[in-house]
């Protein structure tokens, strides 16, 4: 299945900003992070289609997954 992965802030270094990726059915957020060598401890904000999700969430065809490190501001 094809999903769109968006990376932000320091996660972009040596990777990409946005990319269409092919993953097997049943792939979780944790699987995607592993495939991109993003340590789970550094994951701060995870969203699928603009909603926050957890690591174990299973992706489906057409999803957009956004991954951010822990961030703050205001």
């Amino acid at each position: 299945m094809i999903i769109t992965v968006k990376l932000f802030a320091s996660f972009r270094s040596g990777r990409f900003d946005i990319k269409s990726c092919e993953y097997p059915p049943g792939t979780t957020v944790a699987d995607v992070a592993d495939s991109l060598k993003l340590p789970q401890g550094e994951l701060g904000i995870m969203m699928i289609n603009s909603r926050h999700v957890k690591l174990e969430r299973v992706l489906v065809e057409g999803d957009t997954l956004a991954l951010f490190p822990l961030l703050g501001g205001g």
């Binding site: 802030a9 969203m47 926050h52 822990l70 961030l71 501001g73 205001g74």
Partner: peptide
């Protein structure tokens, strides 16, 4: 995060959300 990108790092976060 704040030293590298400043508070404006939130633009992408809030837009995505």
């Amino acid at each position: 995060g704040l030293p590298a990108y400043g508070t404006n790092v939130l633009t992408n976060v809030l837009n995505e959300a």
